[in-house]
Structures are given as structure tokens and as C-alpha cells.
Computed example of a mutant assay.
Amino acid sequence: MTSTGVDGGAPHEAHRRDDTAVPAVRSEGGGLSGLLRPDRVLGRIAQDLAERFGSVFSPETVDRYVVESHAALARTSRVTTHLPALTARFAADRLHALARAEAVVPRDVPEVLFVCVQNAGRSQMAAGMLNRRAAGRVRVRSAGSAPEEAIHPSVVAAMAEVGVDLTTEFPKPLTDEVVRAADVVIAMGCGDACPVYPGKRYEHWPLEDPAEATVEEARRIRDVVDAHVRRLMTKLHLEP
């Protein structure tokens, strides 16, 4: 019986090769259990993701994404208690984006990427608002060119007022595969940090940075973001 890709599409055997630029360090004997990691938790994460993405990517590729994702988040986050769980989410999302970027799985809905500097305010607001309004009709990601440690409290509070819960979200560094997977890339003051690929729609939204904002100020920025989101949905031929 033929296995299917991560989104139910047919697997592409070519993507099972290990094309990593930074090879994982392995102990004698190799295999997932032989990969040298900071702790065994990362080994379990890699094993789980290797099973999930096994029809699409090689175990070596999954290993690399887990190790790199953990290292990237560890550089920006002081919350080590939840770091393994965040690593699993971040690595899974990156692998899913890679599968979309390399056309291993079908594109069933448009993909939108919001990019700002810290991924702690504007881009999180926009992603949360688009997720709420689109209700599954768009795949939404956000990232930062220099991510902060946590989302700004005033942003979390202002978004909660309109029914968007950001308490489980976290700032994420910008990576190449999420840009390649996106159909639309919305930049919010990230300068030249976002790579440009042909065939994608790029927009710049001039928004205030809510980093030091009060809840009242964040509420005003939120409403401006919402107006931009509704216009974007119209461009995507979606009802807000």
C-alpha cells in the first residue's frame, strides 16, 4: 500500500534524501537514538516528527530541523521550562512549510506570512486577527527578524478583548522555508531581513510598534491591523 505525505498527498521519494548543509552529530551506530542532543527530550521530539513526516523527509532532515529549531529558540527565550514543547511546535511548522515550499504536499489554501522585527506585537496581532476572520480558509504564519523573548503583555490583553488568545503563541525567528512556502508576505518594519522570491505578493504595512504601548495604545494599533487584514482578505477573494 502506498503511503501518503503529511497532508495526504502522494510522497515524493526524492525528498527522502538527506540534503542537510549542517549534518547532525551521531554516535557510533547512528540512528535516531544515536544522535547526540542536549537531552533525550529532543530525541523523542525528533522520533515523533520522523514518524509524522516519514513519507516526506528523511530522519536526518527531521533531526536537523529539531536541533536547529531548539538552538534558535534557546537563543531568544529564557523560558526553558516550555522550550521542548515550543521546539516541537516550531520544528513541525518549519517542516510543514518546507513540504509546501518544495511542492511535496498540495496547496489547499493560500499561505500568508507576517514579518516584523520582534514577532512580539504587530505580526502576532495580524496573524491572530487573520486566523480569527479566515477561520481555516488561510494558513497563517508569523516570524521576526530579531525575535523577542515573549509577546508584549499589552498586545495579549488587547487581542483578548476581541476573542483572540495569544497566550499560547511565542516569538519565532524568520526562516527561509516559511518565506518560500508563503503566497503573500506582509512586512512590518523588518527592513531587508526578509528574502525576496519571485512569484510572491509582497506588501508593507506601516504600523506603529506596540513594544512600549499601553493597553489603550495597543488597542488602537489592533484596530488598524484589523482594517489591513480585512483589505487583505478582499484581495484574497475571501469574505472578512
Score class of each variant (00 low, 15 high):
residue 36 L to I: 15
residue 174 L to D: 07
residue 96 H to Q: 07
residue 41 V to H: 11
residue 70 H to L: 07
residue 30 G to P: 15
residue 229 V to K: 02
residue 75 R to H: 12
residue 129 M to Q: 13
residue 228 H to Q: 12
residue 119 N to C: 10
residue 176 D to N: 10
residue 66 V to A: 07
residue 43 G to R: 04
residue 190 C to K: 04
residue 122 R to K: 08
residue 165 D to H: 01
residue 188 M to H: 03
residue 93 D to C: 09
residue 26 R to W: 14
residue 105 V to E: 01
residue 39 D to M: 02
residue 11 P to W: 04
residue 41 V to P: 02
residue 106 P to K: 05
residue 166 L to G: 03
residue 107 R to W: 00
residue 176 D to Y: 00
residue 66 V to R: 00
residue 165 D to R: 02
residue 238 L to N: 12
residue 177 E to R: 07
residue 146 A to D: 12
residue 44 R to M: 14
residue 83 L to Y: 08
residue 129 M to T: 13
residue 225 V to R: 01
residue 239 E to T: 15
residue 3 S to C: 09
residue 213 A to W: 00
residue 129 M to P: 00
residue 77 S to T: 15
residue 119 N to W: 02
residue 169 E to A: 15
residue 212 E to N: 09
residue 156 V to D: 03
residue 154 S to N: 12
residue 83 L to T: 06
residue 188 M to E: 06
residue 41 V to Q: 13
residue 41 V to M: 15
residue 46 A to G: 15
residue 231 R to W: 03
residue 79 V to Q: 14
residue 57 F to C: 06
residue 189 G to K: 01
residue 88 A to I: 10
residue 217 E to F: 04
residue 38 P to H: 00
residue 113 L to T: 06
residue 179 V to H: 00
residue 195 P to Q: 08
residue 123 S to T: 05
residue 103 A to S: 11
residue 5 G to S: 11
residue 124 Q to I: 04
residue 120 A to H: 12
residue 229 V to L: 01
residue 94 R to F: 06
residue 145 S to Y: 02
residue 113 L to S: 02
residue 98 L to W: 05
residue 163 G to I: 10
residue 70 H to W: 13
residue 232 L to G: 11
residue 142 S to M: 10
residue 230 R to T: 06
residue 74 A to T: 09
residue 46 A to S: 15
residue 126 A to S: 13
residue 151 I to H: 03
residue 79 V to D: 14
